[in-house]
């Protein structure tokens, strides 16, 4: 199809460019400036070149945090996306139950991050929490404050509880947008349920799945409040993720230079992985739909 070009379209984008310049580009440039200086005060700073980058890249604790962060984000994607698709496929397409299910699913998304952490902190406590007492009652020794694996499973379960709904709602919107003609054609051809999913629903959901994967990856890679409230990063540093390190560095220790260098590395990693995801998903389904 021939593309239509509007010569004055750039005028329409100018307000967004102006807002983004002030809200994102100017702070980003400031962070770049800070990353090459040792900052003691507004008028008291010294150029140190790439020293902070070298220090951050060589820090074994930060490398460990990066590994944990990748593991956590990929675990989140591996659980939430298939679960989101499965729940969306089971949801009613028409009738009064649609609204009920949508409202129920939207509820976790309305809860603020730190409140989610607090809810799970109480819910999972082995002495008074329903989940903690329930698991221990089954004969499984569970204590998320003392055992790293338990802490990890709890943080992961909390994130799945909080954010799977987003994947469900996006997939549901994608499924609702598929015209009935596709299903009728599949019925005429005698396609199985799996074939309908594989060759109609999945390719048609590619766009929303891409949004779901990108949003969940970026968000889980930046996770801070929930694990901070739930476990405080412990036991040890087993659930200390990148944001917590960064906050401790920038706010706790007031090491603005190293924190700025850390932020740039963090930003570049998110940018790279998100771009790779975007390209892979965009190119995977080409020719199918």
């Amino acid at each position: 199809m021939e593309k239509t070009y509007y010569p004055k379209a750039w005028l329409m984008v100018l307000p967004v460019v102006a807002i983004v310049s002030f809200s994102a580009i100017v702070p980003l440039m400031t962070v770049i400036n800070y990353s090459v200086q040792d900052i003691f005060g507004p008028e008291n700073r010294y150029f140190v070149g790439m020293e902070w980058f070298r220090e951050i890249l060589g820090d074994p604790e930060i490398r460990g945090a990066f590994q944990r962060q990748f593991l956590f984000s990929f675990a989140v994607l591996a659980i939430e996306i298939p679960l989101g698709i499965a729940i969306a496929l089971c949801m009613p397409r028409k009738g009064p139950w649609v609204s009920v299910v949508l409202i129920l699913l939207a509820l976790p998304l309305l809860v603020p991050w730190n409140v989610v952490g607090t809810i799970w902190q109480m819910f999972a406590r082995p002495d008074i929490g329903l989940l903690g007492i329930g698991i221990n009652g089954l004969g499984i020794d569970y204590n998320f404050t003392g055992n790293s694996i338990d802490a990890w499973v709890t943080v992961l379960a909390m994130d799945v509880w909080h954010w799977t709904s987003l994947a469900v709602l996006l997939c549901y919107a994608g499924l609702q947008a598929i015209p009935d003609a596709y299903y009728q054609a599949a019925r005429i051809d005698g396609a199985s349920r799996w074939a309908v999913f594989r060759y109609i629903e999945l390719p048609k959901m590619r766009g929303v799945l891409m949004i779901a994967i990108l949003l969940r990856f970026m968000d889980s890679f930046k996770i801070f409040a929930e694990p901070f409230v739930l476990t405080g990063g412990g036991p040890g540093d087993s659930t200390t993720f990148l944001s917590q390190y960064l906050t401790t560095m920038a706010v706790g220790q007031f090491d603005l230079g190293p924190a700025a260098a850390f932020s740039i590395i963090y930003f570049l990693v998110i940018l790279l992985v998100s771009y790779v995801f975007y390209q892979v998903i965009n190119n995977l389904g080409k020719g199918v739909s």
Binding site: M29, Q37, G49
Partner: peptide, 15 residues
């Protein structure tokens, strides 16, 4: 622009 803590190398890079 002082609050942005510019240095010559970062100014060259951004430019």
């Amino acid at each position: 622009m002082g609050w942005m803590a510019w240095t010559l190398p970062t100014a060259i890079f951004c430019s």
